[in-house]
């Protein structure tokens, strides 16, 4: 799919790509715009935009709170679609939606894919939809050419990774450790073995996320994976220092 192609083109000139995460409507769509502008200007290669959900089961405290505050401010799925279209028109990098399955389910799966495609969204990350629960969803993803990104976890067996690989497209999101988003990870020996297992299981690019906070973390995975995912850390930074702090932070990561 086009997402993988775009990422490979970028990988031709960079040792590691950066993917960042934002929660749509938190603290506001205006701040989202500013943050994305700074991210793109400082070389971010791909952005996952989270459509907030009231029950974000796989997210830790920082992203959980951002989801709740965004919903409390009145963010709707329609707002998020419109914003996604605006960003992918304005910038020449791939944009993805990350959300929970109920959002797409309630929207109507086919309509969700149609509108994502029209909006120029290149991929979807749905952490609570394993392929065996989403036969129709994964079929639609191929029909509409919006890549269904799947997740590998340290608890996934080799056989399970192979199974996931057969449904995935775009890239594989390898979570660095057990747990939810937003806590520190240890990129030690066990991690290296795990990443080697991931690499053996798929030909797709590998992204590593959960707990990447600084240039040392990015350096630790360079050469072992293709994409470093920075999630909760930019949200913390914007909370603490405002959107203008994002540019220098991103620039210092690699």
């Amino acid at each position: 799919m086009v997402l993988e192609k775009q990422l490979r083109e970028r990988l031709a000139t960079k040792k590691i790509l950066l993917m960042t995460h934002i929660v749509l409507g938190y603290p506001s769509f205006d701040v989202n715009r500013e943050v994305i502008a700074q991210m793109v200007a400082n070389g971010v290669d791909c952005i996952e935009m989270q459509i907030p959900f009231s029950e974000p089961m796989a997210d830790g405290p920082v992203i959980l709170k951002a989801n709740q505050d965004s919903l409390a401010a009145g963010t709707t799925v329609a707002d998020c679609m419109a914003f996604g279209a605006e960003m992918s028109k304005q910038y020449d990098i791939p944009f993805l939606f990350m959300t929970y399955y109920n959002i797409a389910f309630k929207y109507g799966e086919e309509k969700f894919f149609q509108n994502c495609r029209t909006a120029g969204i290149k991929g979807l990350i749905i952490p609570d939809l394993p392929p065996e629960m989403g036969v129709e969803f994964f079929r639609l993803a191929r029909e509409y050419q919006v890549a269904p990104v799947l997740i590998f976890a340290p608890t996934s067996t080799d056989a399970r990774m192979a199974e996931l690989n057969s449904s995935a497209a775009g890239f594989i999101y390898c979570v660095a450790r057990r747990g939810v988003t937003g806590k520190q990870s240890d990129f030690g020996e066990g991690f290296t073995t795990y990443l080697a297992r991931c690499r053996a299981a798929t030909k797709l690019p590998l992204a590593v996320g959960f707990g990447i906070r600084n240039s040392e973390d990015v350096a630790a995975i360079t050469g072992k994976a293709d994409i470093a995912v920075i999630g909760s850390e930019t949200i913390r930074l914007v909370d603490r220092e405002g959107p203008q702090a994002v540019g220098p932070f991103i620039a210092g990561l690699r």
């Binding site: 394993p130 996934s156 399970r160």
Partner: peptide, 9 residues
């Protein structure tokens, strides 16, 4: 069973 991958095993 709509569960995150980490719980699969």
């Amino acid at each position: 069973a709509y569960i995150p991958e980490i719980l699969h095993e």
